[in-house]
Design a protein around this nucleic acid. Structure first.
Lengths: 152, 152
DNA sequence: CGCATTCACTTAACATGTTAAGTAATATCC
DNA sequence: GGATATTACTTAACATGTTAAGTGAATGCG
């Protein structure tokens, strides 16, 4: 069997960990986990979003997101109100405090990203992301055909 | 701020998830999680390994590995014995049952990997892994200089 | 209308990620 | 040789990943 430490999943895992290791200490200073930061960033760019939509954007599963929203709401970093038209849906938005926290963290975060870009090379970075995107597309089509085969 | 869904961490996360989504169902059929499978695969290629060494190979943190080894030992998939020379160290090895389970799963796993390789292209795959490796190297040197700055 | 189905979200349960603290054995240093 | 530090590993505590089940609201359809 292939040397598993050279397998694609392990390569991706190690690469991502190497990247996130750069960010985590700064986020931690502000009492944020990587995932909480993802939620705030996703919310920052829009007025309000439904939970399901937010889950897709922040790439989180519903149950994880549900817990985190509860906690973030308790910390007054986000706000929720149920939609008028459909009481099942709840609209989530970032609070003033949330915006303030983002403003405090964003400069460091940007600086770290810039440092990574500089080290790896902007061109390399773009090429890498292009390949990652293509990989996703390949495998998404694999999933789709599976679903058809399963009659889903 | 950059559109965070196009950031490197998110690209890596989505790509890895797209890959692992292909494997998880088959592992699940055999009652294995992704991480348990990593442990077995890491052990399969060597006689025995210390826990710390295994953690490095399977890219798991000590506490996670400690729990998983307890469970895998209870399922008789691995074996442990403390080293004679140094009673702190415990040597971990895969059991006969573990080998049997691996033999049962490996063909499907290989087939899935081959399918991914074919879809994405062997050349693209090699190029991607090369880039991921370089990214790791870049950032590892960043960590190293941080440690020096911190006096570590 | 009534009722089964679907939908949006939450809760539950268990496994792992992550950091800190604990434990026992070994190494170091005087 | 004995106090101290370090090492290898485990436990603890809390956050998230993951699947299944639960809940209440909207939809579809007779």
């Amino acid at each position: 069997m292939r040397d598993f430490s050279r397998s694609l999943p392990m390569s991706l895992l190690r690469a991502r960990e190497a990247v996130m290791r750069q960010f985590r200490p700064k986020l931690r200073e502000h009492g944020l986990t990587e995932q909480q930061w993802r939620i705030l960033r996703a919310l920052a760019s829009i007025e309000a979003a439904e939970v399901t939509e937010l889950a897709r954007t922040a790439f989180l599963l519903g149950p994880s997101l549900s817990r985190m929203l509860r906690d973030l709401e308790a910390r007054n970093l986000i706000e929720r109100k149920t939609a008028k038209a459909d009481q099942r849906r709840s609209m989530v938005s970032i609070s003033k405090e949330g915006v303030k926290l983002m403003a405090a963290v964003a400069p460091s975060s940007e600086a770290i990203y810039a440092e990574i870009t500089q080290r790896f090379g902007a061109r390399n970075l773009a090429a890498l992301q292009e390949m990652l995107g293509q990989l996703e597309v390949c495998l998404a089509s694999a999933d789709a055909s599976d679903e058809i085969a399963d009659g889903a």
